Simulated assay, not measured.
Amino acid sequence: MPKEEAERTSQAVSAVKGDLFDTARPGGLHERVYKSLVHAIISGRFAEGDKLPSEAELAMIFTVSRPVVRQALEKLRAEGVIESLRGSGNYVTGLDRLVDSMQEFGVDWSKHAKTMLDDLEFRLVIEPEAAYLAARRRTQVDLNRMRAALGRFEQAHATGRITHHFDYLFHEAIALATTNTRFIDAARSVEFSKDVRSLLIRHLVYFHPVGRGAESIQEHLRVFELIEDREPESARKAMWNHLNASRNRLNEQLQVLRNGLRGSAI
């Protein structure tokens, strides 16, 4: 590989390693790569039509061999999540087959519903305090990070993309603004504990069809404005209100799904 190309690859890997993938997932080597790739796709980091990093880049990101990466990609192709174009690379084709494969919905449903409710219960304790501290400690860099995440969230929502990744980036930006590693670790633990089915269910519950996604965006904007204005008490309350509203929306849609109307708007 020419020196210039190697340097570009190294720079690309450095840019994405901490942002796109959780590289420490459990399982064998190819399973770890597969789980992280599918999480990035299902959480919305990669949309339909997006090109994945090359095999060489993925091998460097995950510190594995290219045959291991190839095995993970073959599994994604078999599931209809990606397709390979000769001489071009691997592209995301969609999630329809994964959604259709969730016929055990009734079997796994209670477990995944409880996971989502447990997440919100935990976040209702942690994140209002994070918003309070962020309003007191935020810097312009923090505000820029939050504003960028909100913009990407709105854009993804407006185009019908999965918004989970951008939702997470906003909440992570608030945690980062606290400058407290415990809050940052807590925010990331909730994100990366998600398995494939939980992420798919979350998308079906919150944002498919578009439904009440606009409400969530407005709640995020309110939290951001209060952090920007250095209103810690109000920011704490606004974050609690947002997460409680999310819990209410979740419970409403859970009831819809239990009644067999899985595809109805929320």
Score class of each variant (00 low, 15 high):
His165Asp: 05
Pro232His: 08
Ala130Asn: 02
Lys111Gly: 14
Phe183Leu: 00
Glu4Leu: 08
Thr179Phe: 07
Arg247Pro: 02
Glu228Asp: 12
Ala173Lys: 00
Val125His: 09
Val81Asn: 04
Met102Glu: 12
His112Ala: 14
Met102Gly: 14
Thr139Phe: 02
Ala158Val: 04
Ala265His: 12
Phe62Asn: 01
Ser193Asn: 13
Arg136Pro: 04
Leu257Glu: 12
Arg161Thr: 02
Asp118Gly: 11
Leu98Gln: 10
Ser193Arg: 13
Lys111Ala: 15
Arg70His: 10
Asp119Arg: 11
Tyr34Phe: 06
Gln71Lys: 11
Leu200Tyr: 03
Phe153Ser: 11
Ala158Ser: 09
Glu215Lys: 08
Lys51Glu: 10
Val68Gln: 03
Gly160Met: 11
Phe21Ala: 06
Ser84Met: 05
Thr179Asp: 10
Thr178Cys: 00
Ala158Cys: 04
Gly106Tyr: 12
Ser246Phe: 13
Ala59Ser: 11
Arg236Ser: 11
Val190Ala: 09
Ala24Ile: 07
Thr181Pro: 07
Lys17Val: 06
Asp108Lys: 13
Arg8Lys: 12
Val125Phe: 08
Ala72Arg: 01
Pro26Val: 01
Pro128Leu: 00
Ser264Asp: 06
Arg182Cys: 08
Trp109Asp: 15
Leu143Thr: 01
Pro67Asn: 05
Leu133Gln: 00
Gly94Thr: 15
Gln218Phe: 10
Ser36Cys: 00
Lys17Gln: 13
Ile201Cys: 05
Lys75Val: 06
Thr139Ala: 00
Glu31Arg: 05
Ser101Glu: 03
Trp109Pro: 07
